[in-house]
């Protein structure tokens, strides 16, 4: 499996990462090597094998639908890079 630079750029965009040219070229090589290594899985016959997403599966964990105390606004905003009027402040997303 050999990734192209265009592949790397597409993945970086999907992952919202800004990479330098040097990083792109390095990741192209390293990710290709890791994916080559993963090709060993191709030798297994996986027909009829059920996937395992979790080691210990629990289903439908519910709680009573009741109000519980949540964090005070000042605690929630304490770590915000920018805030205004008790809200997180971000750049405009619409023109």
């Amino acid at each position: 499996m050999s990734l192209t630079l265009a592949d790397v750029e597409k993945i970086a965009d999907l992952a919202r990462l800004e990479l330098t040219d040097e990083e792109k070229s390095q990741y192209r090589k390293q990710l290709s090597a890791i994916l080559d290594y993963a090709a060993v899985l191709d030798e297994l016959d996986l027909t009829d094998v059920v996937p395992t997403a979790h080691a210990v599966t629990r289903r439908n964990i519910m709680r009573e639908d009741v109000m519980e105390p949540s964090l005070p606004i000042e605690d929630v905003l304490h770590n915000a890079p920018q805030e205004a009027q008790d809200q997180f402040l971000i750049q405009a997303v619409l023109d």
């Binding site: 990734l3 592949d7 993945i11 999907l14 990462l17 890791i34 994916l35 996986l46 059920v50 395992t52």
Partner: peptide, 25 residues
Amino acid sequence: IMLGTYALSTGYYDEYYGRALKVRT
């Protein structure tokens, strides 16, 4: 993040992530 994004991306999910979950079994 790059590797994981790739393994989950359209067209590669079954080949990588999906296959890995089966071998996990």
